[in-house]
Every structure is written in structure tokens, then in C-alpha cells.
Nucleic acid binder design. Structure first.
Ligand SMILES: [Mn+2]
Ligand SMILES: [Mn+2]
Ligand SMILES: [Mn+2]
Ligand SMILES: [Mn+2]
Lengths: 217, 217
DNA sequence: CTAAAATGTTAGAATAGTCTAACAAAAAAT
DNA sequence: ATTTTTTGTTAGACTATTCTAACATTTTAG
């Protein structure tokens, strides 16, 4: 049985590993806001449990078993987020904190029932994929809106950041996952994009916003 | 902020206080399955926080503030149990363990939403009262079926034990909260009761079972 | 290719929660 | 009224998780 603490370390390492080629003790330390020596000893402990493969001064890596464990926790996290939005009426900017806690509940059945209640969703409220019952994630290859060109038609599928302020901004812009977007114009000067949403409303999006809007063609 | 551990101590003390006139360190120790010296030091700690009033060698008592805190945790526990039964399809014998964990989630809003989703229930799946938002419990004065007499008509309102085996037995007997019961006959020899349920089915209930069926007249 | 900076590790201490062993007080039994 | 039993307390130790300070290694810069 893993502790809540161990689960959070694994999850953080998993996320860092998908974002970066190599993950250092310092990366993990920053990501968890826990000092390096603490991370160092926990890494050794998880290495002892066969979840992290660790060699002194080398980048950190999850073992196969560690990947699976992390995937299963992320599965729980995302199922819970989906449940909170769909059944308890929370906004997508309010669910992460709560899911961060509920993901550690020890009851396979509890999460199975939520999965069932949600009709086996494939993505969470932020458009991130929900790992399967083996902890396996199917990564979608979305592109950033930022990389699109004028006159391109795409669909808003996921967000690149789950920061509160970003999600609230997207809400204020009345953008929702699934919206059809057409790039009307890109400003030479600051890369601001003028887009048409659902063939109805025009919006101006800064490059920073466009960089965090993930779309499929 | 209270820790999960502290919350469990408070809750246990609250429950013991409603069942017994006086609660000893040993009672609390047994109820939590934690050794006396550990309980002793935690009691001192909670006394320091103004939640328990403690004097050496004297019975343990919750302060006003401790009662309120315990009531609020029990509220969360029972709301969660109700939610698990009504929305996730769990049996009333399966929910306690999960509620024992979820009751510690730090999010007022989460429990408010569950309360709302359940349409502000007043009792949990076992017929126990759900404390109000101030942690206040309104105790119903139900009597034990055991104490009823022949030909008396009563209604099954709550269970006196939440033991797995007892709840499963009640299920197997097809008894549900709200059922109308008429006492047909009480055996002189072993106090076994013959009852009529919902004017339809006859059942034999041992005294031990009858002692844990709480009814209103 | 050294020197400085960044990163990583070890050592030692702190807190929360638990335990066992030993001692103390209160309650019960004789 | 003692003695015995039960209950309660203290002392000291252990594990998990965290920290700071000091030292070591690796990486980067000049
Ligand atoms: Mn999240
Ligand atoms: Mn978490
Ligand atoms: Mn319960
Ligand atoms: Mn609990």
C-alpha cells in the first residue's frame, strides 16, 4: 500500500516526465515545493519499492510499475474532476484541489462507480486524457492554437495550463471545449490572434492565451 | 486546521459520549484500537486546543467547541454515506469505510454540494440523524423493537448496529427503513419475535436482532 | 581547462503519531 | 483496611515526512 505522500511524488514525476526529456531531483523538488534533501530520500525509498529507477546524480525515471501506479492515480484524479464538474456543478477551475485529495481514497469500487456514473469518460474537464484501468494513457497529438495559420479551421480540445487565472479567462471569453475556431487574422506585431468561434463570435486572443489552447485540425 | 487523526479522535469521543455517561481513556483507546499512552497524549494535545476538557484521572469530555467540531465531521460522514448509497449504488453495509476517509476532505463546498444534490437529507442510510451545519444533532427517541409488546404496530426507523453482518442480515430478511412492523408473538422461552412486515410478510427475529432494530410508535 | 555555479547528497534535527515498559493512582475485592 | 486489579500516566523509542547546514559532484562559464 502506498501512502498519500508517495502517491503525490509518483504523480509529480510522471507529469514532469511527459513534459521534459529528463527529470532532475531539483525539478521534482520545485514541482512538489519540497526541499531537495527530502525529495532525495523519498526517491531512494521509492526506488527501494521498485517504482523509481534511481542512480546517484542521474536523471530520475519511473519504472514500468511506477508508471502504472502513477497512471492509476491520475486516472482517479481525472475521474473525480469530471464527476465534480458534471454531477456537483463545480467550475473547471475549482476541481483540482479537491481531486488532489480524493484521488487518495482507498476504494477501487468507489472509483469504478464514479467511472460508471460518468459513462466511462475518456477525458477530464480540461480535455486531458483519463488513463485506462491499467494506468495507460493514450496521448492525443493536439497542436497549440498559437501554431495555427490564418484561415485555418480547428476545434478547441484541451487546455495547456490548468492555472486558475487561465481557466477563468477562458470562461470569461466564453470559450468551451469542443468549440469550433477559425483563425481570422494574426497580428504581425505581437502575434495576437483574431478568431471566429462557432461561426458566431469574434475574439482577440493574446499569444500567451493561444499558446495554451490546444486544438485538433 | 485539524488533522485526520485528530478528527477521528474527536468523532470517537463524541460517539462514546452519546452512548455512555462517562468516557474513560480506556474506552477511547478500545474504540480507536490505539494504545492508552498514545490516546493519553493525544487527549492532552486536543485539550490544549480547547476541544477536550481534560483533568488527570477524570472522565473525558468534549468542550462546546469540540462537540461542534465532532458534529461537523459526523455530518460529513453521514452525508457521504447517503451520497454513496443514493447516487453510486452502494449497499448500506459498504459505505462506512469509504465515508471514514472522505469525511476528512478539506472543502466546505464539496460537502455543501453533496448536501444539495441529496436535497438536504436529515438521516443517513442507517437512519442516524445528520447533524446540521452547526454540528448540532437532533436525537430522535426511537425505541428498540425488543421492547415492544404483542400486537404493537411500529415503524422501522434506524439500526442500532452498523456491523456488516447485522446489516447484511437485515437485507436478507428483506427489511428496509420505513417498513411497517406489527409484533405478532413473542416467544416466552428466548424472546424471539414473530412480526408482520408491511402487512404482507411474516418473519421471525431473534432477540439480538430485535434489540438492534430501532422503531417509532 | 580551471573556477564558479548549479545540482545532488549526507548528516543531523524536528514534528506527528504510534508503540512498549515501567510506574502511579483509583477502583474493586477480599 | 489491605491487597489486588484495573485504569491512567510518564518515559523513552520508532517510523514517516519534513527541514537546515555542510559537503560533494557535475555542469557551465570564462
Ligand atoms: Mn487536476
Ligand atoms: Mn494528491
Ligand atoms: Mn458510518
Ligand atoms: Mn475517518
Amino acid at each position: 500500500m502506498m501512502t498519500l505522500t508517495e502517491e503525490n511524488y509518483l504523480k509529480a514525476l510522471f507529469h514532469l516526465s511527459t513534459e521534459n526529456e529528463e527529470v532532475s531531483v531539483l525539478d521534482l523538488s520545485k514541482s512538489l515545493a519540497i526541499k531537495m534533501p527530502t525529495v532525495n530520500s523519498m526517491v531512494k525509498k521509492l526506488s527501494g519499492k521498485g517504482l523509481i529507477s534511481y542512480e546517484k546524480y542521474k536523471p530520475l525515471m519511473l519504472t514500468q510499475s511506477g508508471k502504472r501506479a502513477a497512471g492509476l492515480i491520475i486516472r482517479k484524479h481525472r475521474l473525480v474532476e469530471m464527476f465534480l464538474v458534471q454531477h456537483l456543478g463545480f467550475g473547471w477551475d475549482e476541481v483540482h484541489e479537491i481531486a488532489e485529495q480524493i484521488e487518495h481514497i482507498k476504494s477501487q469500487r468507489f472509483f469504478d462507480r464514479i467511472d460508471q456514473l460518468l459513462d466511462f469518460p475518456k477525458v477530464d474537464p480540461h480535455g486531458s486524457p483519463i488513463p485506462d484501468t491499467n494506468g495507460e494513457i493514450v496521448f492525443q497529438n493536439y497542436i497549440k492554437l498559437e501554431e495555427c495559420v490564418e484561415n485555418q479551421n480547428i476545434v478547441f480540445m484541451s487546455v495547456g495550463s490548468s492555472q486558475d487565472s487561465f481557466l477563468k479567462l477562458i470562461d470569461r471569453l466564453n470559450l468551451k471545449l469542443g468549440d469550433k475556431i477559425k483563425v481570422l487574422e494574426i497580428q504581425e506585431f505581437d502575434k495576437t490572434m483574431r478568431v471566429l468561434v462557432n461561426e458566431a463570435i469574434e475574439q482577440n486572443l493574446s499569444q500567451m492565451v493561444a499558446a495554451n489552447i490546444l486544438v485538433r485540425i
